[in-house]
Simulated scan of single mutants.
Amino acid sequence: MVSLSCEVNGNSTGWRLKRNTKTEKLSMSGVDSMSNNGSNYVINPIKSSDSGEYWCESESGEHSNTVNITVHGGHVILESPALPVTEGHSVTLRCRYKTTPSDLTADFYKDGSFIRTEITGNMTIPAVNKSDEGLYSCRHPGLGESPESWMSVTGPRSQYKHREEFRS
């Protein structure tokens, strides 16, 4: 839960909380997870998709300083290789809910750009290459977004180098 307040000299009249996230720029009124209790805005439950810039804006267009909020440790996890993947090999990224072993329908992203939706929660790259290297994340519409995970890709091992390793 996060609580935010829009007050100027103890007065909140005419001020409204605004936000700009990766996916939306909107006034906080009418957002399902946000409730307005007087001058306090409460985001409960808070999800990684709530990460973004928040500020207060008056009816006349004045605005406060921007506050950046980053939410980590959500319930959606992206399972990706911890070690570099060799070019030409297959790799599967798995998006799952932290407390449930079942698969999720998930949107997959690379470097912040949408790749595709997978109904099983598994995205397979049949033959990775260097251009597949980058930051990956996944998002489930109702459960939130995973933290980003870096996937490294290395070039194929040469036969000469492979033979030297056997002599050692």
Rank of each mutant, 00 (worst) to 15 (best):
D107C: 05
L143T: 01
D103E: 14
G74A: 01
L104E: 05
T92V: 06
R96A: 05
S90D: 11
P126D: 14
M123K: 00
G73W: 00
T92K: 08
V91F: 06
T120K: 09
V71S: 00
L104Y: 06
V67M: 09
G142V: 05
P147D: 15
P101W: 04
L93I: 03
R94Q: 04
T92E: 05
V67Q: 13
K98Y: 09
I77G: 01
N122F: 11
T120A: 09
S131C: 02
P84V: 10
H89N: 15
G112V: 04
A82W: 01
V91Q: 04
L78M: 06
T154G: 05
T99Y: 12
K130Q: 11
S146V: 00
P126W: 08
H140R: 04
H72V: 02
P147L: 03
S149M: 05
K130S: 15
F108M: 10
V67P: 00
G144E: 03
E79Q: 10
W150H: 12
L83F: 07
K98D: 11
V153E: 08
G88T: 06
A127Y: 13
H75T: 12
V85T: 12
S137N: 13
S90H: 07
T154N: 13
I69A: 01
T105L: 10
N122M: 14
S90E: 14
Y109F: 15
T120F: 07
N68I: 07
P126V: 11
L78Y: 04
T99G: 09
P81I: 03
N129E: 11
S80D: 00
